[in-house]
Write a protein that binds this DNA or RNA. Structure first.
Lengths: 160, 160
DNA sequence: ATTGAAAGGAGTTGGAC
DNA sequence: GTCCAACTCCTTTCAAT
């Protein structure tokens, strides 16, 4: 359970049909209601109702995703960031606004924040670190150099 | 440039219209072609052509994403994993198959792999660590306990 | 909660610019 | 590459079960 708009909010239970709809939309988010209906042996009207219900309940959303190459992100780097004198979460949100920053995790470790950043080339690393990240209030230390490669990036599970 | 099906493959350049279409589909992936067309002052036929072209070129995809709560992932944990005697990438792929594992990054640091895992509750942590992760060939050490919280999880940039 | 039918709306294709 | 127009197909609504 979570709080949304100041009210307690429970996600409705997903039955078999809901789950199967999500599964199909994961493969093709622009499949027509009719196509989904045919595949699951229900009517398009039912699909329409179910999808609306899930979207309204913020259980599922259909969105466009793009390839790394479409953004020309050829270099992927993980960064540890130390924070002092400011709320960690707030610093994290500031960092998250940078377009190069793909993910921001708050950690209980030597570095309060851990970032995954995408760059067009290695030449950008200094600009990014010095001008963009180090410039943010509260950031006291950056540990770069730990090049990362992504094996799995589960975009199907996101906070909405 | 990348290699796909044994052939050199260059993503087509995205012009203004393509970019704006993606932007709109990021907000609502099930917007109708007509709606997109109206907003961008072109015809639905043009939108149809552009979307097909981008999907065929694997530049963009529209997919369903679900909320953490829909999966009942209430606990989020980052894990460092040490690997010995086996290819790191291969171990990473094995770990990626576990449903709890949301992301797998290959790192050049003390831990060769870094995972982000989702759990239904803290009680699951022992099962996950001992029975699922430690059981994978090549895994020699796990550093748990660094609880994580996600500020940003950029699902809009994924390998397709 | 699902259905069926009907009316309005949307998608695609081919030909012209 | 975009548009127009026509045809086909889809979406939504509402009464009924």
């Amino acid at each position: 359970m979570q709080i949304r708009n100041g009210k307690a909010f429970s996600a409705p239970t997903l039955d078999d049909l809901d789950t199967k709809l999500i599964e199909l939309l994961r493969v093709n988010g622009r499949a027509t209601n009719q196509e989904l209906a045919d595949r699951l042996s229900v009517t398009a009207a039912t699909v329409s109702t179910r999808l609306r219900r899930m979207e309204d309940a913020h259980v599922m959303r259909v969105v466009a995703v793009t390839d790394f190459s479409a953004h020309n992100y050829n270099v992927l780097i993980a960064l540890g960031v130390k924070v002092q004198g400011r709320d960690v979460r707030q610093v994290g949100r500031d960092l998250a606004k940078l377009p190069e920053v793909l993910s921001v995790n708050i950690m209980n470790g030597p570095h309060e924040l851990e970032l995954l950043v995408g760059l067009h080339d290695f030449g950008e690393i200094n600009t990014l670190l010095l001008e963009h990240i180090a410039a943010i209030h509260g950031v006291t230390h950056i540990s770069p150099g730990i090049a990362a490669d992504i094996v799995k990036f589960e975009f199907n599970v996101v906070p909405l």
